[in-house]
Simulated assay, not measured.
Amino acid sequence: MPEHELTLPPPGLAGQTPVRVRMDAQVGLAIAAAVLTTALTAVSFWLSFESLHDLATAHRLQGERAWAWPATVDAFIAIGELLILRASLMSRVDPWAIVLTAAGSLGSIVLNIASVGVSDDPLDYVTAAVPP
């Protein structure tokens, strides 16, 4: 049995059987969380891109430029998140990565809300703000 699968009992419980840690369950949960996080991120970016594309076309950007503009806005978020992951794997905090992610998120949220225009229903604005 591999050494990392066993834990020692707390000092007050000496003489009792050690508890086996289920590494396969932990790995399975980590994989499921990674898959769901990736799916959520992909759908969120798609919704945000659609909204920002509509805003770009409403303001005279056409064709490839109308699709490239949302990419430049939301790329701040993606780059910042990758830099946060890198810092996390190095057990560090990268303040610039946090600033980059926050700036991209706030910019994307504001622009997605702006794409709604004038509406009497407050949920229109909430729905526009949620994807990023």
Rank of each mutant, 00 (worst) to 15 (best):
M1W: 08
M1V: 08
P2F: 05
E3A: 12
E3W: 03
H4G: 05
E5H: 11
E5W: 07
L6P: 06
T7M: 03
T7V: 07
T7P: 00
L8D: 10
P10S: 13
P10Y: 09
P11K: 14
P11F: 06
G12W: 15
L13K: 14
A14M: 09
G15T: 03
Q16F: 08
Q16M: 09
T17K: 13
P18Q: 02
V19R: 12
V21P: 01
R22S: 10
M23P: 00
M23W: 01
A25T: 09
A25E: 14
A25L: 14
V27T: 11
V27D: 09
V27R: 15
V27S: 11
G28E: 13
G28S: 14
L29C: 08
I31V: 15
I31W: 10
A32D: 08
A33L: 11
A33K: 10
A34P: 01
A34R: 03
L36N: 01
L36C: 10
T37M: 03
T37Y: 08
A39F: 05
A39P: 00
A39R: 01
L40M: 05
T41V: 09
A42Q: 03
V43L: 14
S44I: 00
S44K: 04
F45P: 01
W46S: 12
L47M: 12
S48P: 03
S48H: 05
E50R: 15
S51F: 02
S51N: 13
T57K: 15
H59E: 09
R60F: 07
R60T: 08
L61F: 15
Q62L: 02
Q62M: 06
Q62N: 07
G63C: 09
R65L: 12
A66R: 04
W67K: 15
A68G: 00
A68R: 14
P70H: 10
A71E: 02
T72A: 14
V73L: 10
A75Y: 12
A75M: 15
I77Q: 08
I77M: 12
I79N: 12
I79P: 13
E81Y: 13
E81A: 11
L82H: 11
L83C: 14
I84L: 15
A87L: 09
S88N: 08
M90I: 03
M90V: 02
P95A: 06
W96K: 05
A97T: 00
A97S: 11
I98A: 07
I98Y: 03
I98L: 12
I98C: 04
V99R: 08
V99T: 10
L100Y: 08
L100N: 04
T101E: 06
A102I: 02
A102K: 01
A102H: 00
A102L: 11
G104V: 02
G104F: 05
L106F: 02
S108D: 00
I109L: 05
I109Y: 00
V110Q: 01
V110E: 01
L111C: 08
L111H: 04
A114M: 09
S115M: 07
S115G: 08
V116H: 13
V116N: 12
G117Q: 12
G117I: 09
S119F: 13
D120N: 13
D121Y: 01
D121W: 05
P122Q: 04
D124C: 02
D124R: 07
D124E: 10
Y125S: 01
Y125F: 15
V126A: 07
A128E: 07
A129E: 06
V130Q: 00
P131D: 02
